[in-house]
């Protein structure tokens, strides 16, 4: 079977971690790994793995649009705003890992199929991939939800310079996703960085305020959702099951990474990348059914 060709645009933590996941996929092939600087850590890693590389950024794809069917954009929201129209014009599907919010928001466990009709799919944020499925379950199983809050804590070493500069975009994008998927009009997102050594695993807590809680329905819904997510993020684990205490609902998950580029504490890289891979593989399966590749 011929694999679907994907290019990775952006050679930072996200892009390099994604490369390992593409190399492991039986549906995808990394036809180009694109950065800006051949001596960067990510680029030299790609070279040592025998992957074709370019230091020309988006120019590389403009000059050679045949090189890929899908681009994973791991640059920044500002850059993706420039990349998106170009990729659309070239007929290349963009899976957007920046908080640019141009395409529909995708949580594979919730709306994977619906996203496949689009040419630009937004993966929201790492904290959003961890928290929004739980917020969605709250929306599906509870009535009159007044407010939802999602708090993620990640290891300082897993947050690169772009993540740090884009904290506001992270928060605003995550809040938008929580509201959209849960149907709750009031939401807040918080992000903490913890520098402890050895590094802590990513942890995400979801709170809700509502007049009356149907706890059995919530617990069943969360159990089902966790199982679904574990199909593409094996280490997604419930550490505080849905609980009603001190006038609030609380639940918490921990995400360990597979340890591809950064060690296993970087569950935040893993969860958004695993979700992006799930989307790309679904495209590959669809094309293969249609006999396109």
């Amino acid at each position: 079977m011929e694999k679907l060709k994907v290019a990775i645009l952006g050679s930072g933590n996200i892009g390099t971690d994604l490369l390992y996941k593409v190399l492991r996929s039986s549906w995808l092939e990394c036809s180009m790994f694109i950065g800006r600087n051949l001596s960067s850590k990510g680029m030299s890693r790609a070279l040592s793995l025998g992957v074709p590389v370019s230091d020309k950024g988006i120019e590389c794809i403009r000059e050679n649009p045949e090189c890929c069917d899908i681009v994973f954009d791991c640059t920044s929201a500002m850059s993706h705003n420039l990349h998106a129209p170009l990729l659309a014009q070239l007929g290349i599907i963009a899976i957007d890992l920046t908080p640019a919010k141009l395409g529909p928001f995708c949580i594979p466990a919730i709306n994977l199929d619906a996203c496949l009709n689009d040419v630009n799919i937004n993966m929201i944020t790492c904290g959003g991939q961890a928290s929004i499925p739980l917020a969605w379950v709250i929306g599906q199983t509870q009535k009159n939800v007044d407010y939802i809050e999602v708090v993620s804590t990640i290891a300082s070493k897993s947050a690169g310079p772009a993540t740090r500069l884009n904290l506001d975009e992270y928060i605003e994008t995550t809040e938008k996703g929580v509201k959209m998927f849960s149907g709750c009009g009031r939401a807040k997102a918080i992000l903490n960085l913890n520098p402890a050594e050895p590094c802590i695993d990513m942890q995400t807590t979801v709170y809700a305020k509502l007049p009356e809680v149907d706890l059995p329905a919530l617990q069943q819904g969360v159990r089902d959702m966790v199982e679904k997510i574990q199909q593409y993020v094996p280490s997604y684990k419930l550490v505080i099951p849905p609980t009603y205490e001190n006038n609030r609902v609380i639940m918490s998950v921990r995400v360990k990474g597979i340890g591809d580029f950064l060690p296993s504490y970087a569950g935040n890289l893993d969860i958004i990348n695993c979700a992006a891979i799930a989307v790309a593989e679904e495209f590959a399966k669809k094309r293969s059914e249609q006999g396109v590749i």
Binding site: V151, T153, I190, N192, L193, N194, P195, A196, I200, Q203, T205, V239, I240, T243, E245, I250, S252
Partner: peptide, 17 residues
């Protein structure tokens, strides 16, 4: 012992449990 920082109040519930 877990070197929690400000903003990690959710850890309190987890540790208590």
């Amino acid at each position: 012992a877990r070197k929690v920082v400000g903003g990690q109040e959710d850890k309190i519930v987890e540790v208590a449990m």
